[in-house]
Amino acid sequence: MKMKKSLVSWALVAGCTFSGAVMAAPPTPEMLSYACAGCHGTNGGSAGMTMPSLASQSKASIVDAMKKFKSGDRPSTVMGRLAKGYSDAEFAAMGEFFSKQKFHPTTQMVDAAKAKRGEEIEDANCSRCHIDQGKDGKDDTPVMASQWLEYLKMQAALYDSGARKMPKDMADKWNKLSKEDREALLHFYASVK
């Protein structure tokens, strides 16, 4: 690629670079986000049981999660390492993209009795923030509905070990639940479509 110095500085100002004679723009929110699909599924709808769906998550929850992964506040395997390759503006662009994707319902095996008990617990404890049975992401509250049970269990274990920090409002409720009720709650969220 040939590029005159004056062009480089102009391009930087304009947020563009040149490839030969063709002008190349910075990657769009869609193109940034498509890269996530290798692990999180096309448009953020996950088919893998340990991997969360990003589709229909709120922009704020994605940005919040990515910032925490990047800083190490939230434990992860590859996510924190990848987050270091992106800027806050790119997190916002990706958050915007995923917030516009359709809710991704999953079909999975859950224990019906546990899910029923979980619904009661959810209604009494969680529904003020996780609205519409966890289907609607409000502010920085993540979409819980239809997430894979295996993923929910792994995250619950991280909460219980103290590796992942819980918001105070949530901790107040969660810490009062028995082990069985916590599990029932996860079965419920996994079953919501």
Partner: peptide, 25 residues
């Protein structure tokens, strides 16, 4: 990955989901 192998079991589980998601895609 960290050299202390503290994440190897979790990464094994994530690897399986990687395969599932990328082949589904």
């Amino acid at each position: 990955s960290p050299a202390d192998f503290s994440l190897t079991k979790a990464e094994h589980a994530y690897g399986e989901s990687w395969l599932k998601n990328i082949l589904t895609e």
